[in-house]
Design a protein around this nucleic acid. Structure first.
Lengths: 118, 118
DNA sequence: AAATGACGTTCATAAGGTGAACAAAATACA
DNA sequence: TGTATTTTGTTCACCTTATGAACGTCATTT
């Protein structure tokens, strides 16, 4: 995802942002590769997304447990991140419900078309 | 749509094919520009699509009424075209219903997520 | 016949996600 | 501690694909 989006956030980017935040909330020590794999998107895409989240202060890179052996890095959702996630979630719910109705209509139409033939 | 698709038909192409066939069936004298405008896609895309349909024998370019003044060109769905359209329609119905269920689940999840916050 | 307009056709372009290659950091091993 | 190895983040050239302006062709008009 090399090219900074010139226009508004595309729906793909919007959705990716939400899905990445979900994964991070559930598992802050997830790797970018793991996230990409789990979400079925490219590594570059996840990297671009997380970078944007960090830049906006919605996600923070914490390194804890310095004294321990384990690598203590984790992407933590900030309070702003949590509330932003809620906002996006609500926004998505609205959008998905619209799609839902559209689909319902389309299904009715397709069904009708198939009936006409016989 | 200059580049012939190397891989399988993408869902966009598949759907465009069906929607173009629908328009042609309803109005065989429709212009490529009119179709593009009505479907909200590019002229090049429609051109590429129709070309493919003609090549597969699903659409035929008829010029009738030669003696008359009017330009008598029309894209007519062949019998093969009609049955292919039915096939694609059925295929789409299945796909759309799957999407429908996916959406339903997603909506439930989004709703649940929003409940958790309060 | 020339001009006009509408049509189909082409193609250089832009958008945007991809993943291999690279850099940096962390861990393991001596 | 120093070095090798592995893991992780970062970059960027590439590929796919839809776009629409520009062009060629043909019918209609003047």
């Amino acid at each position: 995802m090399p090219r900074p989006p010139k226009s508004q956030d595309t729906s793909f980017q919007e959705e990716l942002k939400l899905r990445v935040m979900r994964v991070l909330e559930a598992n802050p020590s997830a790797t970018q590769r793991e996230i990409a794999n789990e979400l079925g998107v490219s590594l570059g895409g996840v990297n671009y997304c997380i970078k944007a989240l960090v830049e906006r202060g919605l996600v923070k890179l914490n390194n804890f447990a310095k004294s321990d052996r384990k690598m203590g890095y984790a992407y933590i959702l900030t309070p702003d991140g949590v509330s932003e996630k809620a906002k996006i979630t609500a926004h998505f719910l609205r959008r998905k419900m619209e799609e839902y109705e559209k689909l319902q209509q389309e299904i009715e139409q397709l069904t009708a078309e198939l009936q006409e033939i016989r």
